[in-house]
Design a protein around this nucleic acid. Structure first.
Lengths: 121, 121
DNA sequence: CTCGTTGTCAACCAAATGGTTGAGGAGTAC
DNA sequence: GTACTCCTCAACCATTTGGTTGACAACGAG
């Protein structure tokens, strides 16, 4: 679905300069020239970076010379992706802990271990 | 600081195959061979993908043939980065809304507009 | 209308990326 | 110890990426 979108977003944020642009845009809109000023690369290079951010939907503009604006909704897309696997991974940790507890119990009372294995789904 | 780390993490997740690997590892550890099976690329290609994930700290193994495990802590790094700018952007939206409210007030009662401009920092 | 400013497009280049195949290293099983 | 299985390393290739410079399109000010 939005597989491709997610790829573009992550790829866009993989570059430190582009992350810095996002950081700066989070506190104020700015024109391309303003954005390019602090870096020691050409204006064209920054323009390209902005195109990448724009293609990823992280940033938008109403016209060429209009100030660039951060599109904060895209963050939700990432957060949603991350949260899913983070939660799943944490859930697994919890189960692992439970299993380790079981094993410790078994070493203490070895005779009872079979009665505890009902949840081997 | 962990600028470089963040770049590697985002770059790692920019590839759909690698995101799929992460997704699968979030529900169960697996060996390289098991992970490679579903894809129609070579085992070597998957091995490379895993190296990228490993260099980003997203994944780890105790030895070559040991099952690969997802390192969930890295998600915190991303979430922290995202949250900062998401919150900042939302804060700006709130201020913008407030400003728009002010402007609407001004059009209604134009004579009082100067008394409302104390926060022009 | 003309001129200067601002930003993009095009062509080019070096380095990185994602894939391939072939060879080899390290365990495991016999 | 030998053989097999699993995985990685090396070399190579095509494509993408991040940068450059030069030309030019479009807009605002005079």
């Amino acid at each position: 679905m939005s597989e491709d979108r997610l790829s573009r977003v992550f790829a866009a944020l993989a570059d430190p300069t582009r992350r810095d642009l996002v950081a700066r845009l989070s506190s104020a809109d700015a024109t391309v020239g303003e954005l390019a000023a602090p870096y020691d690369v050409s204006l064209q290079a920054v323009s390209k970076h902005l195109k990448v951010l724009e293609d990823a939907g992280l940033v938008s503009r109403e016209s060429r010379r209009a100030p660039v604006r951060l599109e904060a909704e895209v963050f939700d897309l990432m957060t949603k992706w991350i949260d899913r696997y983070q939660q799943q991974a944490e859930e697994r940790y919890r189960r692992l802990d439970a299993l380790l507890d079981e094993m410790q119990d078994s070493t203490r009372e070895t005779s009872r271990q079979q009665s505890r294995e009902q949840d081997a789904s």
